[in-house]
């Protein structure tokens, strides 16, 4: 790589352009090698950056290595996640083993302050008995490499919550493109259309490529977040936090994520969502108190609840249209 001219470098590793951009380095002569180029930069210019020639060259090498790591890991996927139990706030042993497989939907229930966030933090951190709970996290039945903790391409958990908003001043199409590029994904246009199609299915209020991101309604935003996470997020686990009144088809949203082989964790007390899961983790006093499998009769109850929910949805729709509910 050191022997390539900048022109060759950019054609072989298109992401190398970002190195010049992020460091504010103007490229005038593309026929130089990177080392030659760096050597021509004036001392005063580098002093403004707070770096010297040697340091900048080293930063270039590390940059290329990191970007290559990210490119290689664009399909970070796991088959299972295992939580080996630790202790609750009183030092009492919790349920000792919980294995979650790809494509499963798991609900997490328990009062505020019971330790739901701590469980999640343990999963995110891939705890190895080095957190207050003493839990241990296995990925595909093995202890994950410690380097994963700090690499952005091995981030285990993606998050979706009611409080999240889009803040970028950009249209939907460009936004998805930017996200896809940041993941170094090739079939950007195809992915973009897929995401918009699914998002529109989830929210029922159509938007397109040119809709400004910040003008999306609450439901549209949530729908786009779900679809984008399903197709473009690196993380194999998706945590959904309090998405009860999001204005999207929740059942379809979960199906979409599971179809993309995500493990879905939902922190919720909405019975409709809680019964959709395969299992429920009950958290009490900082520990996993028990793990419940959704029973057959619960599944029947879910059908009843869905009917009630449908009635509510119909009424809502009629109100929206200005009809009477008599």
């Amino acid at each position: 790589m050191e022997n390539l001219t900048i022109e060759e470098l950019l054609s072989r590793y298109p992401y190398a352009i970002e190195f010049f951009d992020v460091n504010g380095l103007p490229i005038e002569d593309k026929q130089k090698t990177i080392q030659e180029y760096i050597n021509t930069l004036p001392y005063v210019f580098l002093e403004d950056m707070g770096i010297n020639h040697q340091g900048l060259f080293k930063r270039f090498l590390v940059f290329m290595q990191r970007m290559e790591d990210i490119r290689k890991e664009r399909n970070f996927s796991i088959h299972s996640l295992t939580v080996l139990g630790g202790t609750d706030k009183n030092g009492k042993k919790e349920q000792d083993k919980l294995k979650i497989s790809m494509g499963e939907i798991i609900c997490i229930v328990g009062p505020t302050g019971s330790g739901k966030s701590r469980l999640l933090a343990d999963i995110e951190w891939m705890a190895q008995k080095d957190t207050p709970t003493g839990r241990r996290i296995l990925i595909d039945d093995c202890i994950p490499p410690e380097s994963w903790r700090f690499s952005i391409e091995h981030k285990l958990v993606a998050q979706l919550s009611q409080n999240m908003n889009f803040v970028m001043d950009i249209c939907v199409g460009d936004f998805i493109k930017l996200h896809a590029q940041s993941r170094m994904i090739d079939d950007v246009d195809d992915k973009t259309l897929k995401i918009i199609h699914h998002a529109n299915e989830l929210s029922g209020e159509a938007f397109d490529l040119n809709t400004p991101l910040t003008s999306l309604s609450g439901g549209q935003s949530r729908a786009l977040m779900v679809a984008d996470t399903a197709f473009l997020s690196t993380s194999p686990i998706v945590l959904i936090d309090e998405i009860e009144n999001a204005g999207i088809n929740r059942k379809k949203a979960l199906e979409l994520l599971v179809d993309q082989n995500k493990i879905v964790l939902i922190a919720t007390h909405d019975p409709l969502l809680a019964l959709t899961g395969d299992k429920r983790i009950v958290i009490k006093n900082g520990g996993i108190y028990k793990v419940l499998e959704t029973t057959e009769s619960e599944k029947q109850r879910l059908e009843q609840l869905t009917e009630i929910d449908n009635v509510m949805m119909q009424y809502r729709e009629r109100l929206r249209k200005g009809e009477l509910l008599d």
Binding site: L160, N163, N165, S221, D228, S233
Partner: peptide, 10 residues
């Protein structure tokens, strides 16, 4: 906690 997952990743 207040921006989307995608924006966080970017």
């Amino acid at each position: 906690d207040i921006v989307s997952q995608a924006e966080r990743e970017i």
